[in-house]
Each structure stands twice: as C-alpha cells, then as structure tokens.
Design a binder for these strands. Sequence first.
DNA 1: ACCTGAACACCGTTCAAGT
DNA 2: ACCTGAACACCGTTCAAGT
Lengths: 215, 215
Amino acid sequence: MTRRTDALSRERIVEATIEILDTAGESALTLRALTAHLSTGRGALYHHVATKDDLLAAASDGVIGRVLAEVGGHEDPAYAIRALALGIFTAIDGHPWVGSQLARDPGQPAVLQIWTSVGSQLTRLGVTGRARSDAGSALVNYVLGAAAQHAAGARRAPDQAARQEYLQALATKWAGEDPDAAELLRDHDDRAQFLAGVDIFLAGVSALRKPAGSG
Amino acid sequence: MTRRTDALSRERIVEATIEILDTAGESALTLRALTAHLSTGRGALYHHVATKDDLLAAASDGVIGRVLAEVGGHEDPAYAIRALALGIFTAIDGHPWVGSQLARDPGQPAVLQIWTSVGSQLTRLGVTGRARSDAGSALVNYVLGAAAQHAAGARRAPDQAARQEYLQALATKWAGEDPDAAELLRDHDDRAQFLAGVDIFLAGVSALRKPAGSG
DNA sequence: ACCTGAACACCGTTCAAGT
DNA sequence: ACCTGAACACCGTTCAAGT
C-alpha cells in the first residue's frame, strides 16, 4: 500500500491478464498482447511469472477467490452449498475462460479453494470421514463439469415451453427462501438446470446418510 | 471392406491421430507429426478434415463410440448407468486426451452420444420429462467433470490407510452384483470415489422421485 | 535486479503448382 | 480430385545486451 505500483509486478500482470481475457476472450491472450497492454518488453514477464499456464492459473484463482469470499456463510449449510455452487456458476458465466481453465489442472489453487469451501460446508452438514470426501468429490466434479460445459457454450435446448413453465415453478419454490435467488432463476435455463443438479446431489448425500429401504 | 485403404481417407487420418495421442500424448499431436506418420504432404489432410479441432473431436467420438457399444445393456437400469459411467471413466483413464477434449465443446458428437445413452437409461429407470433432463444434465456434467479432472492427473490422496479399508468394503459389497466390477475396484482409488459419486447421484434421483419429508 | 527486443524453435493453415 | 511442400502469419520462451 505504501509503495508505488508503477513498476511491473506479478499482481499487475495477473490483473492485466484478467482484463484481456474478459474483454477479448481466451484466444486474444498472447504474451505479445499482454506486453503491449503493459507496455513492456516480452521477457520482462518471465521475471514475475513462470509460464503462460502459471498466469492462467493465477488469473482463475483471483476470480474464484473473490467469489468464494463474497458467498460467505448462510446458516443452513445446504443453502450455503447451493449459494456456493451458484456463485461459481455465475462467475464462470461472466468469465467463461475460468471454466475452461479449472478443467485443466486439478492441483491448481482455484480448484483447491473450491475443494476447501465445499468440504467445510459438508462438515457443517454433518457429513464426515469417507462419506465427506465422496460427497465432496461428487459435488466438486459436478460443479466443474457443468462449469466447463456451460463455459464452452452449451446450446442444448429441447422444448422451450415446458422449460419456462418449470422455471416458474422452481422460482416460486425458491422465493420462500430467498427472493434474490428466485429473481436470478427467471429466464435463466442453464442456471436452473445447474441448481436442479445440485439438489439431486444434496438429496443423494442426505438419502445415503439415513437409508430407509434395503438392509 | 472391398476397396483398398491405401489412399488417404478421413478414417485413416483419425486412426493415426488416436495412435499418436495414445502413444505420445496430446502435446505430440502436431499436423507435422501426423503427416510424417501418414507419409503425406501437409495440406493433404485438409481435403478430409476441416481443422485440427475437428480431428480431435472425431478421435474422441471414435473412442467413446466403441465404449458405449461395449457397455451394452444390463437388466437393472441403475446398474446399467453405473456400468456406463464406469466405462467412460475407464476409457478416459486409458486415453487421457479424451477427458480434456470432452470438456472443450458440449456440441461435439462424443458428448451428444453420452447424453443419448444416459437419457435412454434414465427413461428405463422410470424418470421422464423435466426430471429426466435435470437428472441427465447432472449425471453427464458429473461424469465429464470427473473425467476431465482425472485425466488432468488428479493427485488428491488424503489418508491412504482409511481409503484402502473403504475400498475393500465397497469391493465386497459390489462383489454380490458383479465379481468383475469388484476386481476392478481393488487398488483403484479414483475409480471407487468416482463410483461413489454415481451412487450419490442415483440415490438423489430416487429420493427426489418419492420425497418422504417436507410438504 | 530488472528490463529490452531480437532471435529461436516451433505452431496451424493456405495455396500455387503438380499429377 | 487429390496431393505436394514451400510460404504465411502467427505462437511461447530464451538470452545477450543494456540500465
């Protein structure tokens, strides 16, 4: 905070990277475009960043980090998980390149952050041990898969009429819990379908905790 | 079958593509390597293939198509879904480049094939209408997400001891249904966790069909 | 220590020229 | 119609040279 940020720094490079990705898309992110944007020489970047992949991972981590911080905690852990998932989905809707990037490396910081957040909410839900890592794996993989598919530009749309009807019903149901969520649902097909998937997993986790059928 | 396959054809090009990807990895697939492998000129490929992306999509479609054909139908639709998911997972384990490719474009033939297979098994399960497309979306996105993460080389491994114990239990349980599946499970952590996720999904679909709690 | 920018070793794709 | 292979317009990364 005290020093001038005029000089090149990893932070400034990551910032510029996010800006280019958001405004011009993933294909526009070349090191040449980036150095032009920062008005510096090509090799200068390599004093602050290991590789282009490193840069993409750092940019994704920045976006996801902000989302997870904003989402915060809701009292009901199941609701918190829905909010967490929806926050990630919304972020990827606004920054499609993040969706592609998250699918690329399971060990990158952004993905580990998501694991941690999901894990802590599952703990609050009362799920522990092996069941917790299974449920976490299921949820994280679902969210990342949906995110990548949506980011790549999902075009599936079977019958638009029935879908609108369903959307209304789901929005009404959710309105009881959070009017803002209901607002978001209206006219957002992919979002509604994504949330329906989250509910399927939550129902599955709950059902497997207290099985009421076989022995 | 009657004509000689000596000449260049889309099929021969796709075959050679799969071979290079399997033996040398995705980074080794260059059009230069491919033309060398086929001992032809660079531009010749473009008479049979639109672009390199087209080629990757065709190669993935070939692998997935074979898997879906082999998996066939089991009498119990829930079991058939597990077999389908496991088949895709195994294919991606053996051809990691397929996992990355499937995450890249939701409209490519291989992904549409997966949607179709999942959809028909869900119908056999008795799920229809809106519930069917929600469940299908959840399962497909989960499978593709897990596949991409696994393909990228998942390295998460918390406590190896408890995991081994769990594996044994799951393998024993599954042995009642299919000894071969139990065989596959032993010593395959990611595979077991993947299947646990499929079971969470199936439990969720079942639970949401006959809700036994709220009004 | 940090930066510059030319050079290096690649890419996917195109296209005039051949058969 | 199909194929050739040189040429084109790019890449990410490196590195001697500057300050």
